[in-house]
Amino acid sequence: MSTVPSLIDIKGIRDGLLVKLGDSAWPTLQVALIDAIDERRSFFTGARLALDVGGQVLHVAELVTLREMLSERGIFLWAVLSSSSATEQTAQNLGLATRISKPRPSQVQHAPDAVMDAIALWLPRTLRSGTLVEFPGHVTVMGDVNPGAEIVASGSIVVWGRLRGVVHAGAQGDLNAVVCALELTPTQLRIASEIAVSPKRKGKVQPEIARLKDGILVAEPWQV
């Protein structure tokens, strides 16, 4: 890879190519990447590309432009890895993966008891079908979680709205994690390694909280 500038590190992985970007301003990196690709067109054409952008904070417009530039060159961008949660969020919104094959080391290190109360993700919007939110802490959604949307959190999940998608609280094994929602009717609900589906129910909808009691998933009225 001697022809490739040092800003860009390319290696083959099981799912295609992984390109790691160095530390520099985004426009510089983008130009360097496209130059590197144009230099070796035949090598890249038809490739599935995962991009590790480090701590770069990227906006929708930047990722859309890049994806388009790549697709014009016959390259399919399928994942963007980043240590910035803003960038991860943007990538997820655009339907890009933010993990390749197995969880990144930084994610695995979170022991169950390492979920601190201080870490929470605030999502003041409705999560529509196809949205995947993965977070190493608590997640609060102010809006609905529609069928086809998925939340995976190491901590607890609070939905101020209708929860109808799939949620997994305590994903790293935290048995004390809870899930609560104004309308708790998930497609599937998981806490730690327990899985449950919503029972068909009638009557008035009320806020509920789901938790593990003696290893069994139970849902009860949410009263604070």
Binding site: N93, L94, G95, L127, R128, S129, G130, T131, N146, P147, G148
Partner: peptide
């Protein structure tokens, strides 16, 4: 629903 999400 998925399309609305992508448009947004």
């Amino acid at each position: 629903d998925r399309v609305i999400g992508l448009v947004e």
